[in-house]
Design a protein around this nucleic acid. Sequence first.
RNA 1: GCCCGGAUGGCGGAACAGGCAGACGCGAUGGUCUCAAACACCAUUGGAGGCAACUCCAUGCGGGUUCGAUUCCCGCUCCGGGCACCA
Length: 823
Amino acid sequence: MAEHYDAQAVETKWQQRWEQQGAYQVDNDDPRPSYYVLCMYPYPSGPAHQGHIRNYTFGDLLVRQRTMQGYAVLSPIGFDSFGLPAENAAIKTGTHPRLYTEARIEELKSSLKRLGASYDWRREIRSHDPLYMRWNQLIFQKFLDAGLAYRKNAPVNWCPGCQTVLANEQVLADGTCERSGDVVVKRDLEQWFFRITDYADVLLDELDGLHWPERVKTMQRNWIGRSEGAEFELRVDGRDDEEAIRVFTTRPDTSFGMTFVVLAPEHPLVDRITTDDRRLEVEAFVERVRHESDIERQSSEAPLERRGVFTGAHAINPFTGKPVPVFLADYVLITYGTGAIMAVPGQDQRDWDFATAFDLPIIRTVEPPVDWVDGPYLGDGPAVNSDWLDGLPVAQAKAKAIDWLESQGIGERKVNYRLRDWLLSRQRYWGCPIPVVHCPIDGIVKVPEDQLPVLLPDDVEFRPTGESPLRYHAGFLYTTCPKCGGPAERETDTMDTFVDSSWYFERFCDPWTTSEPIDMEAATRWMAVDQYIGGIEHAILHLLYARFYTRALGDLGLAPVDVREPFVRLFTQGMITMDGSKMSKSRGNLVAPEHYFDGVGADALRLFHLFVGPPADDFDWAEQTDQMIEGCHRFLGRLWRLGIRAVDRVELVEREPTESDLEMEKETHRLIDRVSSDFDRWSYNTAVAAAMEFVNAVYRRIQSPDAARRESVDFAVDSLLLLLAPMAPHITAELWERRHPGSPSVHTQAWPVADPAQVKVDVVTMVVQLNGKVCTRIEVGAGIGESDAIDLVQADPKVVKAIAGRSVKRVIARPPGLVNLVV
RNA sequence: GCCCGGAUGGCGGAACAGGCAGACGCGAUGGUCUCAAACACCAUUGGAGGCAACUCCAUGCGGGUUCGAUUCCCGCUCCGGGCACCA
């Protein structure tokens, strides 16, 4: 009776052995060529969920394959351990966020170990580790020195649910918080910002060179939102130059068609230019808009007549010298451009609508096509009604208009971005404190470097008041000014957790160094990350911030300056959903991996995640999913019996290779070729399918009446184990050890390489078509020539019968695959 | 509204450069083993017709290009995602 496949025993054995041997530790002086694989470090919310399993299975596969290919693979892991859920749990249950978080980390860590994922655990980073906090704070101070971090009072996004401000990136398109779903409101607050806009153009330009999904690059391009145009001044009729209105436009070529000007209601000139007869109405309008939230204002469905108001003032269009009326409208934003626009209804939809509503003139300055019906024309065409621009296409007219503005000294070329500076301060406890004090005499003063990190006090009370517990903690709050020694208050805001995740991948290169945040030598060796793997949900936030940080750190001499981009290649895996919605703790639709570890085993679960579909596609967890996982387990059972040479007690024979034995060897080479190329193109599902198909074929051969040659079968099975090692690491390690006692682990063997001569097939099935429809198939030699193929086809009895005497008009021969006869 | 994906059997999916549609797995049906079951194994499995050889239909819908289209082009429908007064 052959020993059956016991996943528990095998997996426990190997996990223990890997841990004891430190099998996945990689030293910085490893002589092999470097390869850095990284999965986005997780927020520790408890045991792993299926999304984690999927993510870390893909990563682990690559780590193991690259290791077999001869690389020193850096594969670190850590925990994004600051964040709101721990603090909310503290308010609810009274457990301290640190204890809560560390318990969750242990659970998640256990899951990852049971998955059999290979990490250099010595390099583990936790964001809340005082050593990491120290460097996080030091980097902040360097940014402060460099003017990259600053403080300003601004209307900011306040989430009443999270009781903190949010970055623009954390507010969804519908105006709700990406985390809690509450409607975000505007509040004027003094906040900390990072000057990410300084890097807007490079962050945009350098996207081109990245091997990232096009979708993600597009999302970042849209988010940065570069627009090129001109900025220029319009004198207000009857006023001096001090009160000129600056406008930004992407269409300076259409300036002759400007028939009015619109200011944002918050524009500083509103009060000064409004005429007395219009003042009451204007003030009422400004007042009304001020009381609207951003979402109300943006989603306003009020009729246009109510969304704007005439100020009574007129501005002089510098191109025509003629006055045009100045309006206010809620759709003009004070936060973009100059907060004022020139309106050209002939070439802009909103201006057209506004002009129609207020009965303002419309002048076309670009000739629309002859069949143009109505409405603003946004396309290219010759300029009209534009004096010295007439006849020029849009691009040339733009350039000429800008040249003119510059020659007149009233305007210039200008680029604007949609991207705003990154608001990083949070009014919460469980985050990294911002390391400054506020002194009534010296203002903002950095906490001296030798006093870093500023730690979070443990003895705080978590109350649902909405204010950070740090504000009530006298011991933390009251301090002395490092400069003058007088009484001062500590900053009680903490950093956005996206700060922590913006440089952890650089710290992984040498997480031990105590003299600087990033060890230059180590980072030079390992950076950039060769392959980064994570969820699409981080397409903008994390991936943009990390790119900004990498550049800024390089520019400040804190990281290798030649590492301009952190992630060379990015892979975004699909989501696991259930009934179409995201799996999450709050929805209560988590399917715990532990259940499968205890049952079919980690290898079967890994194989399932690889097999179920393209890694980039979403997968909906459904009724049949368990049975599919069972199927993967069944496959491993078949592999097991092959591996221990116990397939139905079949005896393999020693003999000179027969035709069939040689064919199996060729199939083996083809499998090696197939799996290798499938891996290279992230097609794990087809790689698994090929392995299954191969196992079926080997079974058929050894169970056939003339059996199979031992040597050929051994080559087939050993190759199979090597190819499956990155996918199902435990069972392959066990079988390899049993088959090769005393040999090094399967995971340190060289990745197999197919012999190209063996990959080639010599007999192929040639499809014979009649008028494009399949008529028959003929086995032919792979090297068959065109005329031989045609002769063969025309001699085929089936073909002769099908043609039935009709004349062949045309022959399309694509030997050896196909011949098509047209009759 | 704009941009980007996607739609293939009962289900997940395959077809990599325009050339055999449905690989592989799940499910289903029948069988072998068993006292019986579980496990395992074998066979069949897109639909319709036919005893059968075989025929017809079929990759969301409608057109087109081509000897030949799941694949390319045009026009729709539905689903998913991103952006959305950004001047």
